[in-house]
């Protein structure tokens, strides 16, 4: 008989994270990816995960917009360029192209592929009802694998017993 003590992960530890619900509320490239990476990473570790897209974060699950998400070049000090320069025509497009190139070099998926892959991992993908109404988005405009358009109350019910991460 094998002594399982040398395989520590066979035991469930009490403080291990078992479930996360991640809210993606912003629509720029640098604000969408982290939420997706966290959701995907959670599933890869066997953690239950739900993604909830609200406000401009909805672009990540909007069929026509999800692969045209841009890097925010204004009011983004992390880019280390003057704010006035970030507002010049073409700067956001250029920065986005550069970032997309880097992402591809690392063999990271684009947003559309990434969201679909996360859905395939068994994570729930939801849109916020208030935002969908506010922006007048039709259900057919969003990805086909969407698990539902839900209210904030339904979101909390779904998130019960787990951690909530707001991005």
């Amino acid at each position: 008989m094998t002594d399982t003590a040398v395989f520590p992960e066979t035991k469930e530890t009490e403080d291990a994270i078992k479930k996360v619900s991640i809210i993606v509320s912003k629509g720029s490239l640098e604000e969408i990816y982290p939420g997706l990476i966290m959701a995907n990473g959670a599933r890869a570790e066997g953690i239950e995960a739900n993604l909830f897209f609200t406000f401009f974060g909805l672009d990540a699950i909007h069929k026509e917009r999800q692969d045209h998400v841009k890097v925010a070049t204004v009011g983004n000090p992390g880019l280390h360029i003057p704010t006035w320069a970030g507002g010049l025509p073409g700067v956001s497009a250029l920065m986005t192209k550069y970032m997309e190139h880097q992402i591809e070099e690392l063999d990271f998926p684009g947003i559309a592929e990434f969201v679909e892959m996360i859905s395939d991992t068994g994570a729930g993908v939801y849109a916020c009802l208030a935002s969908v109404d506010l922006f007048g988005i039709e259900e057919g405009e969003m990805v086909d694998f969407l698990d539902g358009v839900i209210t904030v109350g339904e979101f909390y019910e779904m998130a019960a017993g787990g951690q909530i991460i707001f991005t």
Partner: peptide, 18 residues
Amino acid sequence: VKELYQLFPKGPAKLAAR
């Protein structure tokens, strides 16, 4: 990917590596 998560439900990459 879908099948991978059915085959190794507790997280395919790490579990399959084990």
